[in-house]
Design a protein around this nucleic acid. Structure first.
Length: 322
DNA sequence: TCTTTAATAT
DNA sequence: CATATTAAAG
């Protein structure tokens, strides 16, 4: 940890990319970002897991990756759906994806394949009909292969990143308007269902209640995820607006006015951690080597995101959105 | 085997 | 949509 990398020298959003500008509004400042050249896995930790630390990433690599990112970004931004938020579901395919994480985690170190980004979520209908760009047939996710249809989704894992997003949305919505459906929509995480959110919301509310009761006193011991989350003081009135809306129960704050309040949740994807990629992170089923270091890896926000390697499932169009 | 956490049922 | 219950993961 030492050197810093400036990636600001690219004239992003120079002219046409409105979305890029919107993203920036929601993105952390440069100071919050971990330098891309910095290794994600500390050597000590790596050795503890008997994994070889990441090869080496020079500034050149980082810069090149950044260029690629921007290039892909521009390439993608040809179409502008009405809904800017959902529009990002089409991030499935990048051509020359050669992002920061060059093929290295593919290296199966311990042989058991504990990590590496084979995380992914199964889709009830998309039986391997995805991008097709060399995807391994990963069928271990289904508890029961009975049928492609009527398959239950794998258990969702609420990674810190996911939870962060959840909390942010809830906070910005205000506890009043924070209902599962709205939350799900605003989070805009591919593959996340309303039930997922509802269940988590329930737990979250329980947590809040507990915290209220015992205003001081640290969190129990299981609230690791919830702890240290900037929960709204208690209630945030409908942030919908500052506009003249004096009531707005909660119908549909999603007319997505020209400009969002202050949280244009940009890209629907999580961090490069082996627990969540693209959309929601599901338990892989086997070898649950879930790293207890999830928390450590937790970068602030989705800052360390790459714009690539989103879930290949772009063909997810249901009236419910999702 | 017990606890935590997400899924499902009411 | 909220809560209670059941099931799974850790």
């Amino acid at each position: 940890m030492g050197e810093e990398v400036r990636i600001t020298d690219y004239d992003v959003g120079g002219d046409d990319d409105d979305r890029v500008l919107e993203w920036e509004a929601g993105l952390p400042t440069l100071d919050d970002l971990m330098p891309l050249s910095q290794s994600l896995v500390p050597p000590e930790l790596a050795s503890a897991f008997s994994v070889m630390p990441e090869p080496r990433r020079s500034m050149i690599d980082v810069n090149r990756a950044s260029q690629n990112t921007l290039t892909n970004l521009r390439g993608q931004s040809m179409k502008q759906p009405l809904n800017k938020f959902n529009g990002f579901k089409s991030f499935g395919e990048d051509k020359g994806d050669e992002m920061v994480m060059e093929g290295e985690e593919t290296a199966d170190l311990t042989g058991d394949g504990s990590d590496s980004r084979k995380l992914r979520r199964v889709d009830s209908g998309g039986a391997g009909a995805v991008g097709g760009a060399g995807e391994e047939a990963d069928s271990a996710l289904r508890a029961d292969d009975s049928s492609t249809r009527t398959s239950k989704r794998p258990r969702l894992v609420w990674t810190p990143q996911l939870h962060k997003r959840f909390v942010d949305v809830v906070a910005h919505l205000g506890v009043k308007n924070a209902v599962p459906k709205t939350i799900m929509q605003l989070m805009n995480v591919e593959g996340l269902t309303r039930e997922n959110v509802a269940s988590h919301l329930q737990k979250y509310r329980l947590y809040l209640k507990r915290m209220q009761g015992l205003s001081n006193e640290g969190p129990s011991s299981s609230d690791h995820l919830f702890a240290s989350t900037p929960v709204p003081q208690s209630l945030h009135e409908s942030s919908g607006g500052g506009n003249g809306n004096s009531h707005t129960p909660v119908p549909i704050p999603m007319p997505y006015p020209p400009q969002m309040v202050h949280m244009p949740y940009p890209p629907p994807q999580m961090v490069p951690h082996p627990a969540g990629a693209g959309g929601a992170a599901y338990h892989h089923g086997f070898e649950s080597h879930s790293h207890p270091y999830n928390m450590m890896m937790q970068q602030r926000d989705w800052s360390a995101n790459k714009f690539a390697s989103v879930s290949p499932y772009q063909h997810r169009m249901t009236p419910n959105d999702k």
